[in-house]
Design a protein around this nucleic acid. Structure first.
Lengths: 211, 211
DNA sequence: AAATTAATTAATCAAATGATTAAATTCATG
DNA sequence: CATGAATTTAATCATTTGATTAATTAATTT
């Protein structure tokens, strides 16, 4: 029989399972996660996770799609806002990224991993469909900016650098923390610093690539 | 017929299994890898992998340690060489990283993952033991450099940035390639470009943080 | 309250999986 | 080439794991 979704008032069993699954999946990845881990983490019986979500994979897909959509939409909101300058957008993006990552430090590695495991499945499932990248506000602003400054570097480099500088520390955090002896709080303080530093760095990099 | 036994290093069964395991592990990660995958990839019977390596985990540990040791030692060779300047070291490091990553694009995600799964186990197993970071040639050079340029930013930031700019594109390659439509060759060409660009960028970032 | 439906559990199944065993094959060496 | 050791295989075991079933409890409806 099909379980019938209920209107959720306070966290329903279904939501509690989903939250537990989110925690376990992002911490251990899909392959290393046992449905029993999710049952234990949620405090409910093993069979319930299949009762509500049919299968481990379905549950995983739901969580992953929610993650990516939340992420993409929030980024799109910044990137396609005509009212801010290019530099402001970079600042906002970085700030937004880092805030989110301090709260959910496991997400990047999790997402990178699962996209890597099956690129088609996830990327196309989300698809910012019907949206041509060149039509984004930020793209037009970049073109004007690049022309004015006579920038010769491929903008893909800049894009990769923005993302890399914001995300990588979180992905490498276990190694970084181990080698430097930083506490989580000290690490997060460094990440706070980077909210201001990265935009400056990006601009400096861009300037270093002008004719 | 005529050709006599040569001294040519004919990869032994053990080595073939190890190579197969390396490929599968780095592609799929530890948890998603079945010992049967390794058997199939190597072309040998399932039982052989246990005959030579006792268990999946032992085999994995061997490969991981080899990876990390190879990596750390090569980096140490650059980083602790007194005969090169700081800037030269950065250039060499980036170049070395990128060459290696173009050949083995799966390694970063693999390593990050497994370190994340169990930080203590792997990091301490490798341990650049007895080597105080502050005694490295590059550390001393950095101190002099930072003093001369009146740099106020935490050097950890710079270190993270060097690593991030070099490694991140490979970790995010499935997403990047999908969104940009770049072929592998085009992607690798971009990475070649970065060998020259990243050192320039790093220097520009450093200059942007001087008083 | 009785009847019906939804939520939850314990028990269990079937397939997948890491590992072992015992037999078969290959290989070296006297 | 005979013999024993090393290598390789097919078959099998014991757990793990995703999923299902049937029974039990809670909630809703009549």
């Amino acid at each position: 029989m099909k379980p019938k979704p209920v209107i959720e008032i306070n966290p329903s069993t279904e939501d509690k399972i989903k939250d537990a699954a989110r925690r376990v999946f992002t911490r251990k990845g899909y392959a290393a996660t046992r449905t029993r881990d999710i049952a234990e983490e949620s405090g409910f019986n093993l069979a319930l996770i299949n009762y509500y979500f049919r299968s481990k994979e379905k549950l995983f897909d739901i969580i992953m799609v929610e993650h990516l959509q939340l992420f993409i939409h929030s980024v799109m909101g910044i990137v396609n806002e005509p009212g801010t300058t290019l530099e402001e957008k970079i600042g906002l993006l970085i700030s937004h990224y880092i805030d989110m990552l301090v709260k959910n430090p496991n997400i990047p590695l999790f997402v990178l991993n699962e996209v890597n495991a099956d690129p088609k499945k996830l990327i196309e499932k989300i698809g910012v469909r019907g949206m041509d990248h060149n039509e984004l506000a930020i793209a037009k602003q970049w073109k004007a900016f690049a022309a004015a400054k006579k920038i010769k570097v491929n903008p893909i480099h800049i894009l990769m650098n923005v993302v890399a500088l914001a995300i990588f520390p979180f992905v490498g955090s276990p190694i970084i923390r181990n080698r430097t002896g930083l506490s989580i709080d000290q690490f997060n303080a460094l990440m706070e610093e980077r909210k201001k530093l990265i935009p400056v760095w990006i601009m400096a990099m861009i300037d270093s690539s002008t004719t």
